[in-house]
């Protein structure tokens, strides 16, 4: 499976987040295509360590592509592999598909001549011996998110006259759904009617972020650095949106601030719309 968590390994491992290697990282880029029978993953990667590249070249280490969707698939790739085809009967992409590359030792490896590692490891490199089948490096993870029929929508509106309250905010699997009992509650026909609905948006975000905290938080707070992209698709959208807007810490107390940062001034626009209505004397 794909391994991402930062931890202290017993020897230097090349990754994009650890500083064991000074020479650089291990970057992977993947593009996804399809034809009738197969999904094709086009791969492009860069291993920024001459030591590890030499091990691969001399076949003392192997390179694997890990494809994780419903289950894990491993493909041994060589330096010339440009793509991997997987039949549609054996991989589903309508949920999340993650890909990573890793380097595995094929025999015992001495790090005595590894010039790419940091100064701490260099102090000990004469003695560093890494055994067979051990991971020597892993890349970033490329994620394909499927199944969402509304991949970017955060909100949906529905009108349901049978509703037992005037409005209802539901956290759906991919979106926040605002149910109205009556179309009139959407202020249709008024100028700038869109912005009159902003309080509902605010409430929707509030509800969704509260759940986000209870899903991923400890003691009512979440550090977004510490959690992976959530599998729940609504939460995944909120997660990406918060990160893009540099909201990294979410707590019960900072929900309003987070909403302010991720939404574009919904309350100010609402206030402006109300003022506009008042001054137009309608």
């Amino acid at each position: 499976m794909i391994y991402k968590k930062d931890a202290n390994f017993p020897y230097p491992v090349l990754t994009n987040t650890s500083n064991s290697y000074e020479s650089g990282g291990f970057t992977l880029n993947v593009d996804l295509k399809e034809n009738t029978d197969n999904y094709r993953f086009d791969i492009e990667y860069e291993i920024e360590s001459d030591f590890l590249k030499e091990l691969l070249f001399t076949r003392k280490a192997k390179l694997y592509l890990v494809v994780q969707s419903k289950d894990n698939k491993f493909f041994e790739v060589d330096l010339n592999t440009m793509f991997i085809d997987i039949p549609k009967t054996r991989i589903s992409i309508n949920n999340r598909t993650s890909l990573q590359m890793s380097i595995q030792s094929k025999e015992e490896i001495s790090f005595a001549y590894n010039d790419d590692i940091n100064s701490f490891f260099k102090e000990f490199r004469e003695e560093i011996i890494v055994s067979r089948y051990a991971i020597l490096g892993f890349s970033n993870t490329v994620i394909f998110e499927g199944s969402s029929s509304r991949p970017f929508d955060l909100f949906e509106r529905k009108v349901n006259s049978a509703l037992s309250s005037a409005i209802k905010i539901e956290l759906g699997s991919e979106t926040i759904i605002i149910h109205y009992r009556d179309v009139d509650l959407q202020f249709v026909g008024l100028p700038m009617s869109g912005n009159f609905n902003n309080p509902y948006i605010y409430m929707g975000l509030q509800k969704a972020l509260s759940r986000f905290i209870s899903n991923y938080g400890e003691d009512g707070q979440v550090d977004l650095h510490d959690i992976d992209l959530p599998t729940d698709q609504l939460d995944a959208k909120l997660y990406r949106l918060m990160k893009a807007k540099m909201v990294f810490e979410l707590t019960t107390e900072t929900i309003d601030e987070a909403i302010y940062n991720i939404s574009d001034k919904v309350i100010e626009k609402y206030a402006l719309a109300v003022k506009g209505l008042a001054t137009s004397g309608d």
Binding site: P10, Y64, E76, A134, I135
Partner: peptide, 14 residues
Amino acid sequence: NYPVIMSPMMAKEE
């Protein structure tokens, strides 16, 4: 021990 030991990629005898 994963991934220090990459067992899912290993052959049966190993």
